[in-house]
C-alpha cells in the first residue's frame, strides 16, 4: 500500500480512536460508552490489517464487534437501574 496513504489513514483512525476513548470515560449514558468501545475495537482491527497482521485483524473484529460488546451489554441489562 502507498506509504503516504497508509500514514494518512493511520493518523485519521488513531485520532478517532483516541477521541473516542476519552469520550468513553465522560459520556453520561453507559450504553453509549459500550457502543463507542465497540467502535474502538473495530478501528483497531483496521489498524491491525494496515500493519499486515491479518489473523489478528480477524480475531479482533470477531471479538470486539460481537463478544465483548455483548458481554458488557448483558452486564448493563443485569444491573438494571443501578448506575
Amino acid at each position: 500500500m502507498n506509504p503516504s496513504l497508509a500514514s494518512a489513514l493511520a493518523v485519521f483512525l488513531g485520532g478517532m480512536m483516541l477521541a473516542a476513548s476519552v469520550v468513553v470515560l465522560f459520556v453520561r449514558d453507559l450504553l453509549s460508552a459500550i457502543i463507542i468501545t465497540g467502535m474502538i475495537s473495530l478501528s483497531a482491527s483496521v489498524l491491525f490489517l494496515l500493519m499486515d497482521a491479518t489473523d489478528v485483524a480477524i480475531t479482533e473484529a470477531s471479538i470486539g464487534a460481537v463478544l465483548a460488546t455483548l458481554i458488557f451489554l448483558w452486564g448493563k441489562g443485569k444491573m438494571g437501574g443501578r448506575e
Binding site: 489473523d55 485483524a57 480475531t59 463478544l67
Partner: peptide, 17 residues
C-alpha cells in the same frame, strides 16, 4: 489462509449466540 483456531472458534460462538 488467514484464520485459525482462535478466530474460527469465536465465529462459531457468534453463530451459537
Amino acid at each position: 489462509s488467514p484464520g485459525g483456531g482462535f478466530p474460527g472458534g469465536t465465529i462459531m460462538a457468534s453463530a451459537f449466540l
